[in-house]
Amino acid sequence: MVTVSVRLPTVLRPAAGGQSKLSVAGAAVGDVVDRLIEDYPALESNLVDDEGSVRKFVNIYLNDEDIRFLESLETPLSEGDELAILPAVAGGQ
């Protein structure tokens, strides 16, 4: 188990007691997501779908890399890693 920081976007802060940055322990990204949901049940429906996968409009980044292109929820963590959860929004000009 290591401890990582998790940044939440504005839209999710109310579900986590108004916090923007949390410290959470876990060995893989999925452990951190489970722990977040345990501590803040209101986050569950926001983060994962019925099958336990990360929801389509949610992107999770490990040290700024999208975990879907790493090992998704199984991506292992190192001490001091930074996770950022961001909603998918329209980009482009």
Binding site: P9, V89, G91
Partner: peptide, 8 residues
């Protein structure tokens, strides 16, 4: 870009 989109 999704971090601070207030209108979301």
């Amino acid at each position: 870009s999704g971090e601070r989109v207030e209108g979301l």
